[in-house]
Write a protein that binds this DNA or RNA. Structure first.
Lengths: 331, 331
DNA sequence: TTGTAGGCGTTATCAC
DNA sequence: GTGATAACGCCTACAA
């Protein structure tokens, strides 16, 4: 079914049908009504591909992602899609692999669909040169927003939204100190992409506060078991520890289990906090204080930013959010 | 940049360029190489919309979803997208609202993009007549798979994949009985879409096993607090309860907290199990036995099913999965 | 092996 | 108010 079929049945030309479909003026009332009737009767759905072709506007946004196993990232993708769809855009999603030119390949696929904007979501896109190259080659003329990123490429159609993790961990140390904690341990998984940033934040925090000392346990797998084992090591090596900063809620929960098994009270003897402010915080007992990494906020803001850009509104090239500590019962 | 631009630079016609792009034979080696060189040099990305238009194949699958807050559903969407993309399809995602003709609107949007197949994901799509109407009107000629559904519409291009929840709860009762439990309580949130199915399963299970009795507490909010309060009521009204079947992991965890606060041992005094086999099961202590509702399996199978259909392979119109109990430390 | 011409479904620009 | 006609970017007979 095409506009010609409708036109034939209405005894008019395709142009009139097109006018009616697009709500354009210049059609006699009865003609319009007759056409509208037929449109409805046959549940006519205009071909968006053809329309894109002639109007040179696709009303489509491309989303590039790199990790399907990361729950939070999935939720981010979903949230973004929702926000864009609400605003009349279609979404094209593409998962890139980890090959040599995966990013370029992904950007190229978006270009093929003539997207009007793009969002890159995931740690893969921290590779600045690759991103710059891909964008320059395939997405030079559309706005690109890097989600969860605090550094953008030099191209001026590239934007970024992200939270400052270093400052976040400095705050964690300050927070523990404000709670009267003096001997802190940082438990984290060395394999995390941002491990060095986190360590840097922790060390900076410790250094700037007198009478506070800190130790880093970086070989901690990101699981409850990992947390428990790490806590065990901490307690053996530094029995005077009174604050545990865990760079992941699961680690914190595992550590807490170990403390409780040893009869150590949380938070009376040792304060514990996690990172992510995930649903787990509300489930464990006592409920876990945790630093919110602002993932959902930053995904939401990315989508809004892109929408602003597409609407022609000015936007800052870089938005940095502050991570926030959500206090519960473990500190 | 179009094939004409490339053609001009190569000193050939657009058809030769098209042939090279699509790997068609009948192009002289040097011509081909010259064209390939230019294609690479300018990072040429053929317009898929135009291609769709002329070839009448979009290589695009539409996904309709209804709830962005449901974590598991998000993961399902993501998983499906991944599977489809791996197989060379593009994905169009569309969230439907809850208006009168939301489903029809969604189907129409997919039709506009000329999708070659569709997946409907969410409880909204249990409304059989609406789905049938929407499909008949807009997606009559492409395969449509209903995800997490055990009932399909009469149209023969509609398929479904889902797990049998009633049978699942019958099994939970049998499982508890096999563990020697005789007085069971079912804790569930009345507002769940499948509440009546779950109750039916529980009652059927109880009825078919001699010496086993059961009580239903259907006013249980789906949260830890809700679980705790419900457990409290159960204990007051039926102190002889020895098995708690909770239609949601969070409810189970909340109930367990209440039991522990009262000094009741789990599982020695009372067995507890949840539903969903979510990540929470591994985090609480003791670790929670839970019935896996096969959400991830059924999403995966839906994607595979659609791919099969698109490849022209025969497929059953309906696939039913069995929910499985994952035993941990609370039973 | 290559080029020409026509068409996919739509919108836009003119005439009438 | 309405209808030809020419694009949009691509593919595919068919002809050369």
């Amino acid at each position: 079914m095409t506009i010609y079929d409708i036109a034939k049945m209405a005894g008019v030309s395709a142009s009139s049908v097109s006018r009616v479909i697009n709500g354009k003026p210049g059609v006699k009332r009865e003609t319009r009504e007759k056409i509208e009737m037929l449109l409805k009767k046959y549940h006519y759905a205009p071909d968006e591909n053809a329309r894109s072709l002639v109007t040179q506007t696709s009303r489509t946004i491309g989303i590039l992602t790199d990790d399907i196993t990361a729950t939070r990232q999935n939720e981010g993708t979903t949230r973004i899609e929702y926000e864009l769809l609400r605003n009349g855009y279609f979404c094209f999603v593409k998962y890139i692999g980890d090959g040599e030119d995966a990013i370029e390949q992904g950007a190229s696929d978006l270009a093929k669909r003539r997207v009007e904007g793009a969002l890159f979501l995931g740690v893969s896109f921290r590779k600045k040169e690759e991103v710059t190259r891909a964008v320059r080659r395939y997405l030079r003329n559309v706005p690109v927003v890097l989600v969860h990123q605090t550094e953008r490429s030099e191209l001026d159609n590239v934007y970024c939204v992200g939270a400052d993790e270093k400052k976040g961990f400095i705050r964690c140390v300050e927070y523990m100190a404000a709670k009267g904690r003096k001997n802190l341990a940082l438990l984290l998984d060395e394999n995390r992409q941002s491990a060095s940033i986190i360590k840097d934040g922790f060390e900076t925090g410790v250094r700037q506060i007198p009478h506070v000392r800190g130790w880093i346990y970086s070989g901690t797998p990101a699981s409850t078991d990992g947390g428990a084992r790490a806590a065990s090591r901490v307690l053996n090596e530094h029995p005077d520890i009174d604050g545990l900063i865990c760079a992941q809620d699961l680690i914190a929960i595992g550590a807490m289990n170990e403390l409780q098994d040893r009869g150590i009270r949380v938070p009376d003897d040792i304060s514990v906090m996690g990172e992510d402010n995930s649903a787990f915080c509300e489930v464990c007992r006592p409920k876990l204080t945790s630093m919110d990494t602002m993932l959902s906020m930053s995904t939401l803001m990315s989508a809004r930013m892109l929408l602003d850009l597409l609407a022609g509104r000015e936007q800052s090239h870089k938005i940095t959010l502050e991570m926030e500590i959500v206090e519960r019962a473990t500190t």
